[in-house]
Simulated assay, not measured.
Amino acid sequence: MANPNIPSDHFLPGLRVDPCRAELHQIIAPDGRVVVNFLPHNEVWHILQYLKHQHPAALFTFQTVPADQLGIA
């Protein structure tokens, strides 16, 4: 199955990210889908807190966007 995640340059053409300091993050739903992608830490953290409040039984994952999606791998 192909990766369902859209690469960052689809939404942010010309994005330049320092490979030593990847600053974009994402939230992964319990079923493996990315529900929030390519946002700074604070914004993703606030969305994650909201999701945890609305769906307390669901386990969402907060992570840094993988380098291959940022085009820096």
Rank of each mutant, 00 (worst) to 15 (best):
H55T: 11
V34Y: 03
L51G: 03
A73T: 00
C20Y: 13
V36M: 05
V17K: 01
N5V: 12
E43F: 04
D68L: 00
I27H: 03
D18K: 13
E23Q: 10
A57I: 10
P4L: 01
N42H: 10
F11T: 09
F62Q: 15
P40T: 05
V34N: 07
I72N: 01
A22Q: 15
F62M: 14
P66F: 00
A22M: 11
W45R: 15
G14E: 13
L39W: 04
H46V: 07
Q49V: 04
A73P: 01
A67Y: 01
L39D: 02
A57H: 06
L24I: 02
W45T: 11
A2L: 10
A58V: 05
R16E: 15
A73G: 12
N37L: 10
T64Q: 14
L12T: 11
A29I: 03
I47D: 06
G71L: 07
R21T: 10
N42M: 10
T64C: 10
V36L: 07
A67L: 06
P19S: 09
D9N: 14
F60P: 02
C20L: 14
F38Q: 01
V65T: 15
L51S: 04
I47F: 08
F62P: 15
V34I: 03
H25N: 13
I6V: 12
P40E: 06
L24K: 12
P7E: 08
P7I: 01
H55C: 10
G71P: 01
L39K: 08
L48I: 00
L51E: 08
L48D: 07
P19G: 08
F38W: 06
N37Y: 01
I27K: 08
Y50P: 04
M1H: 09
P13Y: 14
L59I: 13
G32I: 00
V34D: 05
I28Q: 13
M1I: 05
Y50W: 09
L51F: 04
L12V: 08
I27W: 03
